[in-house]
């Protein structure tokens, strides 16, 4: 039993599965934001957390960071660095959603579409989903870094 758990954690198939899930999710999430940066900027504004001077720059740059990090994870190059960037982004998303949940501020997450859809998806649901993604990302970062050392 004691040997089974590390074997499962270090399983290359699990690494591949997490890489594909995170990579494809981030690529998909970036597409609408890239096509409609103005709508994505309005979603960032809706979080009520970012200085107005940085909203547009973030809306221009962040979707491409999602795209390239996801792409590198799927292709399988710079895997630990791509996982690190994805983990940083997920940590920021989790913090932003949590702060708005605590202060009762309604917002649109804009996670997969830049269309403003209203407060339709529960923030708790979003938070749980991002925590699961972060778990995958941390697992990937640790195992990929370890693989590079070996």
């Amino acid at each position: 039993m004691n040997k089974m758990i590390p074997a499962l954690v270090w399983n290359p198939r699990l690494q591949l599965f997490f890489r594909l899930v995170l990579g494809i999710t981030f690529i998909y999430a970036s597409i609408h934001k890239i096509i409609y940066p103005g709508k994505f900027a309005q979603i960032i504004y809706g979080y009520g957390l970012f200085p107005s001077e940085l909203i547009n720059i973030t809306a221009i740059f962040l979707p491409f960071l999602e795209l390239f990090s996801g792409l590198f994870l799927v292709i399988g190059i710079y895997k630990d660095s791509a996982a690190l960037i994805i983990n940083i982004m997920l940590t920021v998303f989790i913090a932003a959603i949590s702060i708005n949940l605590i202060r009762g501020h309604e917002f649109d997450c804009g996670c997969f579409s830049a269309e403003i859809t209203g407060y339709e998806v529960s923030s708790v649901h979003l938070l749980l989903r991002d925590i699961i993604f972060l778990f995958m990302g941390v697992h990937l970062f640790i195992t990929e870094s370890k693989s590079n050392d070996d």
Binding site: I34, P37, G38, I55, N56, I60, L65, F68, I85
Partner: peptide
């Protein structure tokens, strides 16, 4: 990764018909 994202982001924003100003 960051450099590619910056270059692609600002280039595509410049040429895209949906591009936005740097400050809204």
């Amino acid at each position: 990764i960051v450099g590619l994202s910056v270059m692609a982001g600002f280039s595509i924003n410049y040429f895209s018909p949906n591009g936005i100003s740097y400050i809204g």
